[in-house]
Design a protein around this nucleic acid. Structure first.
Length: 111
DNA sequence: TACTTGACATAAG
DNA sequence: ACTTATGCCAAGT
């Protein structure tokens, strides 16, 4: 019954990722109110045909592109990401290091 | 029902 | 930073 709504919420969560930004599968699931369903997000994307959907902004939690390296989809994802200014190196996007930033803020120079 | 598969995540070594 | 082992969940056989 709510199979459709689950998919709808996931699609909405993906559409909500701002241009030039990325999000992990698990992250998308959480934002859709479906914690623990990262694989459901992957399932939906694997079957998606909507080119307007910003599917390219969804990556693995480690910042790597989920599709098989050098596959057609892989190349397209890299291109789409770079087209919006996202730096992609060796099939992966720079992952944020909040701990380091926090650490610097709390324990940095003169503190 | 039992087993396999997949655009995953996380902890350990 | 990279690889392996486990856990996970929904669908397909």
């Amino acid at each position: 019954m709510d199979e459709l709504s689950a998919e709808a919420r996931i699609l909405a969560a993906i559409r909500a990722i701002p241009r030039g930004q990325v999000a992990g599968y698990g992250e998308v699931a959480r934002r859709a109110g479906l914690p623990g369903r990262a694989r459901l997000v992957a399932r939906i994307l694997s079957g998606n045909a909507d080119t307007a959907l910003p599917w390219h902004r969804v990556l693995r939690s480690d910042g790597r592109i989920a599709l098989p390296e050098n596959s057609r989809g892989w190349h397209e994802q890299v291109q789409r990401l770079r087209a919006e200014g996202v730096r992609v190196e060796r099939g992966r996007v720079r992952v944020a290091k909040p701990a380091a930033d926090l650490d610097a803020a709390l324990w940095g120079p003169r503190r």
